[in-house]
Nucleic acid binder design. Structure first.
Length: 515
RNA sequence: GCCCCGGUGGUGUAGCCCGGUCAAACAUGCGGGCCUUUCGAGCCCGCGCCCCGGGUUCAAAUCCCGGCCGGGGCACCA
């Protein structure tokens, strides 16, 4: 029986076999459906600590959260988890930057909350748990507690009655206890296989918080797991997207949900996201900035959203890439090739072309004694955008790039793009002498002569190229009439796509995006 | 040490839940060709992957066990 006959036969006796296959194929594009998601009822959140700039690593949870809220016509909440005024201190500027960056990524933020505005809420739930006998105020020295915990033993405060716990709590609130002297713990299972889960801390004291938003008004601050657990419920969050590193936190938070008989949101854990050769760590970035190694949070070498933007990466490219990576639990390292390929597709149609000659070398041209104005389209596929004009003047040199030196050998020919073909006479790093050969492009093509770009004169231009942890500066000449504005994304022909970063008088500074 | 995850071409993902249509798909990369006043794009051809070992089964990338490798957590950080 041939394959076709078999298929026909199978279709007779078992038609469902073919139907299922069709369904499967269709789901490929975009994100998979979310478990337990109902149209219009999905509420997601992104909860960053504003202690640094938003970066690609954070973007995974953020984009997934937002994307699903949109797919299901639900709500996306931005919540600043700014409850650590000490170790991971929030800074005012980052609140604004994160909102800005999210908007730049095309987010519609339905609600914004600040954990630091919600301390009274955390307090009231803490009191309830204390009263319920599900939490206690522990005044053990941290080392002592840790020791007991590791042995699976209760600390002396654990089993004191709720009335005492509430009294102790008052002492925490009114300042009788100082930093490090008391902490509220959630009762869990003292024999839990993971010691970190055992009676985890929920609130602690900070003496002089000097919090950027609430100053010294509050001295008792919730820890992440407590604040987050309460907030996710209070704000009605239905689905949580977070990194694999938070998997254990979920175990902790579930105790709180169990005590209050709340339903825990659906959680989706994804792997960590990094990008080839780029540092994402906030603390390392901060250090580099303080040491003067980086220009700032938007240094083109960094993986912050602002840095990517500064390089001319489109928000759509970042979104597409993250959606393509999807929900995988394994860690992923994004390659620049992939990001660049997506971005190139997006900017190619909008980027006008210009000649930028890096490390210019003068080229003397003999044998052509008339002025010649080369007219080059701003974009080869969009002639309606007009042309740039480059004027060749007899007796004056043109400039070509040192990068093209290897293409220039005595007695060989090259074509100066959009000008004419020349024969090379002499070559050195100080200067090149050539002789006019012919005008026709066809001749260059038939002979497979290489084509190089050039400028008759130009304005000073610097291109900043991030190469791993180095920032290479290429100096050169940009065609004089290039009409550029800051933020323009253009293509320097045969060099790469760049974003115009700065214009000071004549001088243009650009940042390299990719080839 | 204890506790979670994960391992498909160079890179990123699909397939794994529900074993057969998978000698494995898509994108990117790399090599070649066509086209084209650069590059790029486009079109065509090619390269390249199921971590290892057992088991179950007529049949395993897919299920089970073991190993190896990688990541993460074990804070009065988030």
């Amino acid at each position: 029986m041939s394959i076709e006959d078999q298929k026909l036969k199978l279709n007779e006796i078992y038609p469902e076999f073919f139907e299922k296959k069709e369904e499967k194929r269709e789901e490929k594009k975009g994100l998979p459906p979310l478990p337990k998601a109902e149209k219009g009822k999905v509420i997601t959140r992104f909860a960053p600590n504003p202690d640094g700039a938003f970066h690609l690593g954070n973007a995974r949870a953020a984009i997934l959260s937002h994307e699903y809220a949109r797919i299901y016509g639900g709500k996306f909440i931005l919540r600043f988890d700014d409850t650590d005024p000490k170790v991971k201190r929030p800074e005012p500027i980052f609140y604004d930057w994160i909102i800005e960056d999210l908007k730049w990524l095309g987010f519609q933020i339905d609600e914004i909350h600040m954990a630091s505005d919600r301390l009274e809420i955390y307090y009231s739930y803490a009191e309830k748990l204390l009263a319920m006998g599900k939490a206690y105020v522990c005044t053990c020295k941290p080392e002592n507690f840790r020791k007991l915990r590791d042995e699976g033993k209760a600390c002396p405060h654990r089993d004191l009655p709720p009335e005492i716990q509430l009294q102790e709590w008052k002492k925490m609130i009114n300042g009788e206890y100082k930093e490090g002297e008391a902490v509220v713990r959630i009762k869990t299972d003292l024999t839990h296989p993971n010691p970190a889960v055992r009676d985890w801390p929920a609130l602690r004291i900070i003496n002089n918080p000097n919090h950027p938003r609430t100053g010294d008004k509050y001295h008792v601050w919730p820890l992440y797991n407590f604040a987050s657990a309460i907030d996710d419920h209070e704000l009605g969050v239905t689905h949580i997207f977070r990194g694999q590193e938070h998997a254990e936190n979920e175990t902790k938070q579930r105790y709180v949900y169990e005590y209050f008989e709340w339903e825990y949101p659906q959680t989706v854990h994804h792997g960590r996201l990094s990008i080839e050769g780029v540092i994402l760590s906030k603390s390392k970035t901060r250090k580099g900035i303080e040491e003067g190694k980086y220009l700032g949070w938007d240094d083109p070498r960094l993986g912050t959203i602002r840095a990517l933007k500064r390089r001319g990466i489109q928000s759509e490219a970042i979104r597409e890439l993250i959606i393509e990576i999807g929900l995988k639990k394994s860690d992923t390292t994004i390659s620049w090739d992939n990001l660049a390929a997506i971005n190139r597709r997006l900017i190619e149609p909008i980027a006008n072309r210009y000649f930028f000659v890096a490390d210019p070398i003068p080229m003397e041209i003999k044998g052509y004694n008339e002025e010649f104005i080369a007219e080059v389209p701003l974009h080869p596929d969009h002639p309606e955008r007009g042309v740039r004009k480059l004027k060749f003047t007899p007796g004056k040199p043109v400039y070509v790039s040192k990068d093209d030196l290897e293409l220039l050998k005595s007695n060989e020919y090259v074509r100066l793009k959009d000008l004419f073909n020349v024969k090379i006479l002499e070559v050195s790093e100080e200067g090149i002498v050539v002789e006019f050969d012919s005008i026709e492009y066809e001749k260059a093509r038939e002979n497979k002569w290489r084509m190089i770009h050039w400028v008759p004169e130009g304005k000073p231009c610097e291109v900043l190229i991030p190469e791993g942890d180095e920032l290479v500066v290429r100096k050169g000449l940009l065609e004089t009439d290039a009409d550029l504005k800051v933020d323009d994304i253009v293509q320097f022909e045969r060099f790469g796509f760049v974003r115009i970063d700065k214009i000071e008088g004549e001088k243009v500074t650009a940042i390299f995006a990719h080839k």
